[in-house]
Design a protein around this nucleic acid. Sequence first.
DNA 1: GTGCTTGCAAATCGTTTGCAATAGC
DNA 2: GCTATTGCAAACGATTTGCAAGCAC
Lengths: 134, 134
Amino acid sequence: MEQFKNYLIEHNIRPSLQRLMIYEYLYKNHNHPTADDIYSALSPLIPTLSKTTVYNTLKLFVHNGVAITLNIEGNELRYDADTSVHGHFKCKGCGNLFDIRISGTPEVEGIDGFQVDEYQINIKGYCKICKVEK
Amino acid sequence: MEQFKNYLIEHNIRPSLQRLMIYEYLYKNHNHPTADDIYSALSPLIPTLSKTTVYNTLKLFVHNGVAITLNIEGNELRYDADTSVHGHFKCKGCGNLFDIRISGTPEVEGIDGFQVDEYQINIKGYCKICKVEK
DNA sequence: GTGCTTGCAAATCGTTTGCAATAGC
DNA sequence: GCTATTGCAAACGATTTGCAAGCAC
């Protein structure tokens, strides 16, 4: 818990109870939750927690660089405390989201001189299990 | 116009006026519009056009493989008639969306044996112009 | 006590759904 | 005539906003 506290402080985020717990949840659960997932998980632990706070906090996290958003599904935003470059695979069968390690960024053309801040690789399809069952 | 008509028919899409015009708009405007953009652009030309039809049509296009969706921004879905594998760069300054050519898909790890249907590379940052102005 | 943080309620926005009117083969 | 398509209105769900109460330094 102390590690998280310092990490947030380093990123100019005052470590309130809510923020600490939301960050801890994000860090420990690599399931790329939505704001609603986080709210549902933490609401029993912090009975007064509101969704607004979850949204506020996540926006702050992204802005201060301790989390990234995943735009893999059109209608919802998912969050990830792993801010390093990596990809995601969304299974259209079971709905699970898998992390993908990327070895060597691909050659891209058309953005010479552009400043790259975020880099997302999203792949959709069917995972091993769902593929077989089709 | 005739070319589009045949293209749609080939993909089992009955070429109604609305569908033809929506496809033509998508094909000719490489600005990756939202459903709303398309509605706004075509509404003056087809006064009775409804947003529902735009949504229905776009969903049909994606399902039948003549368009793809872009999930680069969390709250909105964008559409692209270019169904080949290519990436997109979203400038956080001017909001413009640039096409990126990708030479050689990157090495990925973690999805051995998975069936890949869609492949998206989304990059965000600042384009040449906005980068300078910052 | 001043400013940041929280949290309720209402509003907003993109999208979907139910259903009746319409058009095309 | 039957089926696919259209389009209005209402519903929906994720997110944002306005604002008042609470907390921390």
